[in-house]
Design a protein around this nucleic acid. Structure first.
Lengths: 218, 218
DNA sequence: GCTCTAATTATGCAAGCGTATAAATACTGG
DNA sequence: CCAGTATTTATACGCTTGCATAATTAGAGC
């Protein structure tokens, strides 16, 4: 029950990190549920169980919070994909396969993530700082992918010099992005795992190698 | 020079179609330049050289204008791609190739288009009417693509039953979308025509056929 | 347990938003 | 050239937004 009728909201002092995280989480929740336009200072504060003023205590302006939220999403997706590699095989081809599968399944391939991403992309064009943040994330992803491809090609005894891996990375990146997009936008019209399978088959065709570890189990 | 200091704005009566087009064009301009948030009723009216009230004369609510603008972008891109087919060869493989090239070059692969598209996609998740509009456009595109693929496979003497063309359409669509995305986001880091070439090479690999009209070998 | 300060709430404001509605005007048909 | 009407402008209202600032309080250090 509420303490009193006309009383001040009671509160606890939280660590700076904790508060920032909470505010970012609340922001993401808003954006996911009601779009970027739904992420108002007041609504965010409500979800973080905090008064609006506090937001400005931690973020100079609303845009800074939005930017932080964007970076959080991108980094979260990147980390999730990389995590899938940590627990994966050591075989390079299996690793590439695992990476693709991770990116084309939950929780990365999620309409909420697309909403967030798209909302921010709309801002990228107007805000240079945001644009830089975006490009960094994008190139980081492609570099990681290119390394995986190089290893996979090498492991299959295929030539893998720079010019060929670059182009392959572009193509494979496109396949992943495109399928991710399709899955996020209309996941319900695809069977479970269909997009991941399709992606791996397409990538195998493009690279001209098999990604299955047929020597081993199953 | 302005007519008078405290005078009414003079105006001309335009046809309904012309006005709607102008308003949509002004909306797209706003969204492209300053994001969806920049597309306010007043700003749109300003660009269309019209007073804000007129917008509501042609569109019951602002959202209707936004929706119309979204449909206009999608249809414009679709039409541009289809136009490329009109002037193209009759050879099915050349037609598929032309379709891909058109989608991965100007004016379709343009940062403005991405800005527009992304801004709207953010709404799709929240607004059911927008979601329907989007799905229609998406499926239309994929159907057109699937038909092209079927013809190309057939012309190359490859089996092309429904289940195989469906999956191929998904993959090829992903390649086009993904490369379109990459090009829009960072077109400057790619050589001219590089993305189109990459796309065609990838699609050839996925379909297992050549798309060049030359006698055969590369 | 007191004190001090940083964290948090409360209050308010100016600007901008979408929308409603009434007044004015350019064109159309006679 | 006149009347009628569809189109356009003008004005205003209520709401929400981001942001500023003053008042409060929780918790750390002594």
């Amino acid at each position: 029950m509420k303490t009193q009728s006309a009383t001040r909201k009671s509160f606890r002092r939280e660590g700076e990190d904790k508060r920032r995280e909470d505010l970012i989480a609340a922001t993401l929740q808003c954006v996911a549920e009601r779009g970027l336009a739904g992420a108002t200072v007041r609504e965010i504060a409500l979800r973080a169980d905090v008064t609006p003023g506090l937001i400005r205590y931690y973020f100079p302006a609303k845009d800074d919070l939005i930017g932080a939220a964007y970076r959080a999403v991108m980094s979260r997706m990147t980390v999730q994909a990389s995590d899938a590699l940590k627990n994966a095989d050591t075989d390079p081809r299996a690793r590439l396969s695992a990476f693709v599968t991770a990116n084309l399944g939950a929780p990365i391939m999620d309409p909420h993530n697309l909403s967030l991403w798209a909302g921010f992309i709309g801002l990228v064009h107007a805000d240079p700082a945001m644009a830089a943040a975006h490009r960094d994330g994008y190139l980081g992803f492609r570099d990681e992918l290119e390394a995986l491809i190089r290893d996979a090609l090498f492991s299959a005894g295929k030539p893998a010099d720079g010019s060929v891996t670059r182009r392959h990375a572009i193509a494979v990146n496109a396949i992943i992005d495109g399928l991710w997009l399709e899955g996020c936008l209309a996941g319900d019209i695809f069977a479970d795992g269909e997009l991941a399978e399709t992606g791996i088959a397409a990538i195998e065709a493009v690279l001209g190698i098999s990604l299955s570890t047929k020597g081993g189990a199953k």
